[in-house]
């Protein structure tokens, strides 16, 4: 709840009401034009959600057949039934695992991004050191680095390091330092580790820039006051600076979470287990509307969309800022 309050407070502080440039009928025309331009977005999302509650796919505004509204699609999805005619392809536990996997990746990405970029952003914002300017230039370049050039090499390392790491862990297990049960689930843990850390790394340059912007806004006097009051640099960081960038941390966390949540490529490449993304992908790749029962896929997609929409409603302005927030001078 405090998070919400903080976010809301920062939003209110930045909002200042201004007289719009165009008013009255002209404004009405402008808004109508915007609305018209937005119809594909509005329609496509609406059709998705509507279909997830219907007994058939709803694909057009000109409906000339009867629709029965139902929550059956969600039930089928959770039962692992992909169409009314088919039997159970997955168990309920499987489906819950898919959702959990998506969540683990998103939460993991969030944790890695926060833990690495908050301190780095603080250092860049507050400490003058040799190489600082070059580090900032490097981050800017990496921000726009072709990710596809990395994923080949990262996958190579992923294969290359797996068996030596496993062997090392097995030797450790002999000595009892690592539990046998962990060894049994090594493959999965290893894959999750790679998905999370590799995906998170892609977000780091931009996250550092974003966080730096938030640190830059904290008056130096507050930090100095803490230091003169007797705090060390670390204490001042922990007790004074960090609490003041809470809105920034919240924005960063949401951004990182959504980045991990929306990902398809990395989970597709690295993760043998399914997530919501690969579940949908599997239903549609090579399939067709005639053989895939779309209402169930729509239900899965709607569930997949819920956290995104939730964060959307909560953060609004913060999100708009963060789209390019880090790059502001």
């Amino acid at each position: 709840m405090t998070l919400l309050r903080l976010l809301r407070r920062s939003r209110r502080a930045r909002s200042e009401w201004e007289e719009p440039l165009v008013k009255g009928r002209k404004a009405g025309i402008l808004i109508l034009a915007l609305l018209l331009a937005s119809t594909p977005i509005i329609l496509s999302y609406t059709f998705l959600v509507v279909t997830s509650f219907a007994n058939t796919i709803v694909f057009t505004p000109f409906i000339n057949f009867k629709i029965t509204w139902t929550t059956e699609n969600y039930k089928m999805f959770f039962q692992g039934k992909l169409s009314p005619a088919a039997g159970q392809v997955y168990s309920t536990k499987d489906i819950l695992t898919f959702i959990a996997n998506t969540f683990i990746v998103a939460a993991g990405v969030t944790a890695v991004v926060l833990a690495s970029s908050i301190p780095a952003a603080y250092a860049i914002s507050r400490i003058n050191f040799r190489g600082r300017a070059n580090l900032m230039r490097l981050l800017m370049l990496l921000h726009a680095f072709p990710g596809v050039a990395l994923i080949i090499a990262v996958y190579f390392i992923y294969i290359y390091a797996r068996s030596p790491l496993y062997n090392a862990l097995r030797d450790l297990a002999e000595t009892g330092l690592v539990s046998k049960s962990f060894l049994a689930s090594f493959d999965l843990a290893y894959s999750f580790f790679f998905v999370i850390v590799a995906r998170a790394s892609l977000e780091i340059p931009m996250s550092i820039w974003l966080m730096k912007g938030f640190f830059d806004r904290i008056p130096w006097e507050l930090e100095w006051a803490a230091i003169v009051d007797g705090a060390s640099r670390f204490t001042a960081f922990r007790k004074v600076v960090l609490p003041l960038v809470k809105p920034g941390i919240a924005a960063l966390a949401i951004f990182a979470f959504l980045a991990g949540w929306e990902d398809l490529i990395y989970v597709y490449v690295f993760l043998p287990e399914m997530t919501l993304a690969t579940f949908i992908h599997n239903q549609l790749s090579g399939g067709s509307l005639e053989t895939t029962y779309l209402p169930v896929v729509a239900a899965a997609a709607t569930i997949y969309l819920v956290p995104t929409l939730l964060f959307f409603v909560v953060t609004q302005r913060l999100l708009l800022e963060a789209v390019w927030g880090g790059l502001k001078g």
């Binding site: 006097e221 100095w224 230091i227 009051d229 007797g230």
Partner: peptide
């Protein structure tokens, strides 16, 4: 600063 036993009141109070 924390070894000097000084206090400071800033212009913006901080």
């Amino acid at each position: 600063p924390n070894e000097r036993n000084v206090s400071i009141v800033f212009q913006n109070y901080a």
